[in-house]
Design a binder for these strands. Structure first.
Lengths: 195, 195
DNA sequence: TGCATTATTGAATCGCAGTTCAAAAATAAA
DNA sequence: TTTATTTTTGAACTGCGATTCAATAATGCA
């Protein structure tokens, strides 16, 4: 018997995030991911069925984590809807500060993957989105947020705005301070949402 | 002598927008564009150097038009900054109502193309973005918009939000009414911007 | 130490699709 | 009609890179 050395499956995933961010999914070469992960080209196919599976796995991990963290925030009773909304924004910012390359991959490749194989895309994404919407609905119900908006539309709008900003930041982190981005987003969005 | 029949160059561009929207740029097959345009595969290469050039041309045309229309709005003196901001939103909505496939291509492929060859990307895009920023700055200067925001950040935020919404709408136009999207965006954004 | 089993390797394969180009067709002028 | 010129064609080419797989290496166990 022989056991697998270290954690090659994860090494490959981490390398793939970097290479996908650098070159884009379609221009990313498998041998480059292998090189960065410190494994042979063939090893990739021991751990993942194919290139697309790697991308799927990246998003699976991302949204599962984000969903669980948002769920923890959402079920708290010691903070109100406004604070939960803040928490949601912080969650996204924190995730992508830790891993800017992941932010780039998210913005550039998620649409492609969903379009390519909607069934294969992690359900945690939809669960995350739904939960975000719940928080806004809670805010409206508790009279903190204005009822004069369509929650689904505004949820998408905010999400798209965040996505774009995080992407810009990840592309050139020196240009903007992430904290200033974060505060501006909160300020602007809450003015839009609050009663 | 022989003259070129009809306007094959444009036929190809229109077909390409549809095929790129349908399959994504990387999965789009040249022969399918040719088929839809009603020309032979080889003809594509008479009119465009390669596949990437077609995509570049699509964005060139898009942003040149949008920039010119926004410039016309921006230089008007009979309307204020708030109305100009409305005009900007309407401009984008109108463009993509006319051509939902173009909205999809815009959202999915623009980042890729800019990353691939920044110099080759149409300068009208940046001009458009700058002009949009000017309108917000004008609003702040004239005391209509709050000065408590970073214009560049909020400009990106709004732009990203619009982008995402238009994309969602283009993917499934029956799900949302575009007019309701438009009104929600204006309402929410102006609450964020106004003094 | 030797054997069995599993992990790892990376050169070779193979299919795909972007691109080319020689031939054919269409048109204008003579 | 004939000729010269340009457009159009699409089958063939070609290069790339994802994937495969037979060989090799590493490990655990007897």
């Amino acid at each position: 018997m022989r056991l697998k050395e270290g954690n090659k499956g994860n090494d490959i995933l981490l390398a793939a995030i970097k290479v996908f961010a650098e070159s884009g999914y379609h221009n990313a070469k498998i041998h480059k991911i292998a090189e960065l992960a410190g494994v042979a080209t063939g090893s990739i196919y021991v751990y993942y069925k194919n290139k697309e599976t790697i991308l799927q796995r990246i998003f699976e991990q991302l949204w599962e984590r984000l969903y669980n963290e948002l769920a923890a925030i959402s079920r708290r009773t010691d903070i109100n809807a406004i604070e939960k909304f803040d928490g949601l924004i912080d969650l996204l910012f924190d995730m992508f500060i830790k891993d800017p390359a992941l932010a780039v991959v998210f913005v550039n490749e998620q649409n492609y993957l969903i379009q390519k194989d909607p069934k294969g895309f992690t359900p945690y994404y939809q669960k995350f989105i739904d939960l975000g919407e719940c928080i806004v609905v809670e805010g409206i119900d508790k009279n903190a947020f204005t009822p004069d908006i369509d929650v689904k539309i505004i949820r998408s709008y905010i999400f798209g705005g965040l996505r774009h900003l995080l992407h810009q930041w990840a592309q050139s982190p020196e240009e903007y301070s992430l904290d200033s981005i974060r505060e501006n987003v909160k300020y602007f969005s809450k003015r839009g949402l609050l009663k």
